[in-house]
Design a protein around this nucleic acid. Structure first.
Lengths: 141, 141
DNA sequence: CTGGTTGCAAAATTTTTGCACTGGT
DNA sequence: ACCAGTGCAAAAATTTTGCAACCAG
């Protein structure tokens, strides 16, 4: 488990019980909506407020601790900030899986944005379809 | 201008004044939020209801006439369904620009999803950064 | 200590729904 | 004429805000 106390402090945020638990929950799920974070962290810390989750998610996205993953037809999910990667998004069960970003793809993309005079700050490659579980008929979630 | 009457009928939808104007407005903007559609179409058809816009956007996404483009930190935008392409999204002014999908990138992606046993239905490659206008300090919108 | 953070409740915003009326085919 | 589609208003859902109490540094 990552040291979230240090991560938070380095980002200029106080390491509160709420924040640490939010981060640990996100780590556990990989990709998670605000509702689910609230539900999960509430189990450990019953007095948690949904407003606190909203405020913290927004703040941590701003501080580059978290990344918002907007998904067509669903609520946004959030993940820990890490190197760019590809998302395989199942349109049936909603599951999001990470795949490493193919190096040559990345290079091509960077070249293209340079030509366009576009200052690239982040990229999101989202592939929508059916995961292997859902192809077999049963939903994962 | 595309023949939206035919497009709608082929999709099993009635060609109403509202729908045709919604589609024409989306074409004009390229990528547009529901609010802006409402504002724009209201100029031509003052009695338009926002609920009608919501209902129609949802329906037309379902019928594959439109595609939702979810954008981090912003409301979703909608575009006419066309071949897959890359979005350059300006984090400053919100502008979305289309770029053709690099063929080799597409091939690599398709190979990868096959290996993963993931049935790919659509892909969204969104690049976030500053457009050339906003780099110069002035926002486009 | 003390300024950032939390929890609560209220407000604001966004989206959905039900239903009578209208209009496309 | 039929039934999908519309508009309105109300309801539901989601997100934001203000503020007093609290706690990490």
């Amino acid at each position: 488990m990552t040291d979230y106390v240090t991560l938070l402090k380095e980002s200029g945020l106080k390491a509160t019980f709420q924040r640490i638990n939010i981060l640990e929950t996100i780590e556990k799920y990989g990709h998670i909506t605000i509702d689910t974070i609230y539900e999960e962290v509430s189990k450990i810390h019953a007095s948690l407020s949904l407003a606190t989750v909203y405020k913290n998610i927004l703040l941590m996205v701003e501080k580059n601790v978290l990344v918002e993953v907007p998904v067509a037809g669903q609520k946004s999910k959030y993940e820990l900030k890490k190197e760019d990667h590809i998302h395989l998004i199942c349109t049936e069960c909603g599951k999001v899986e990470d795949k490493p970003l193919i190096r040559s793809v990345d290079t091509l993309i960077e070249d293209m944005t340079k030509e366009e005079n576009f200052t690239l700050s982040s990229e999101q490659i989202n592939l929508y379809g059916l995961c292997s579980d859902c192809q077999r008929g049963q939903h994962a979630s």
